[in-house]
Simulated scan of single mutants.
Amino acid sequence: MRTIERLSAEEFEAGIKELADLLVDAVDDGASVGFVTPFGHEEAAAWWRAQYPAVAAGTLAVWACREDGAMTGTISLALAAKPNARHRAEIVKLMVHRTARGRGLSRALLATAERAAPAEGAGLLLLDTETGSTAEHVYLTGGWTRYGIVPDYASSPGGTLQDCSFFYKRLAG
């Protein structure tokens, strides 16, 4: 049984170990999510703990997918802080554990964040991902518009510079 739920600040704090497990798995599998190898559980947990103030303040919404009790995926929606940008938000840290891939979980998580964004005042969503990645395919086929590619934007977990594609999506309503 699959559930996707937004984590309260307390649930987020209690789930940091599982969120760290997802982040370590993503980096170990080569996902360009902001970290390079070697990358361990303590470093991942510290990164998630640093996000707690934003979760508690409501400026970072984090959803977790659970299948049979295990956390298998997550997505976050970062609300813009600037007064002239409060109509937009950024999709960050969409991650699915490699053992749970190929079952539509990325699309389900993305749809969850897209449905929730308007209630947060965000009618325009932005994101970036490694050009040519599986994630890019999810966005290209999910109604997102690629507005540019920046060469050598970020390094892969192994340290090789990779191009990055930037996307936006206008939400109805």
Rank of each mutant, 00 (worst) to 15 (best):
V92C: 08
A50N: 12
S106P: 01
V62A: 03
T160G: 14
G173K: 11
A54I: 11
E90V: 15
A80I: 01
L22S: 00
R98S: 14
F166M: 15
E5Y: 07
Q51F: 05
R170D: 12
P53F: 03
A119L: 11
E90I: 15
Q51T: 02
S133E: 05
K17R: 11
T99V: 13
V92S: 04
A44E: 00
V55T: 04
I16F: 08
R146Y: 09
G104A: 08
T134G: 12
E11P: 02
A26R: 00
L125Q: 01
D128H: 02
P83M: 06
T37N: 06
G159V: 04
A20F: 05
H97P: 07
E5W: 07
E114N: 07
A172P: 04
A61P: 01
L140F: 08
E18Y: 06
L171Y: 09
G142W: 10
I149L: 06
L23A: 03
A135E: 07
L60A: 10
A85K: 15
P38T: 11
L105A: 03
E136C: 12
V36M: 12
V138N: 06
T131P: 04
A85E: 14
H87S: 01
P53Y: 02
G158V: 09
L161N: 13
S106E: 05
T99Y: 13
T37D: 03
T37A: 04
A46L: 00
A81M: 09
L171P: 03
L125Y: 01
V96Q: 00
T72Q: 07
S8K: 13
A46V: 00
S133L: 04
Q162H: 10
A100D: 06
T141Q: 15
T129A: 05
L161K: 14
T59D: 15
S155G: 03
F167C: 07
L7A: 13
G15I: 03
I75A: 12
L109E: 00
A46R: 08
W144Y: 07
Y52K: 09
I4Q: 06
T37V: 08
T74S: 13
S155P: 10
Q51R: 12
A61I: 10
E120H: 14
M1I: 13
L127H: 03
G34V: 02
P53V: 03
G40E: 14
E5S: 13
D163C: 14
M71P: 01
T74L: 02
E120S: 13
V92Q: 11
L109N: 00
A108P: 02
T37I: 05
G173Y: 08
R101Q: 13
P118Y: 06
L94W: 01
V55K: 00
E114S: 08
P157E: 05
E11T: 07
K82S: 13
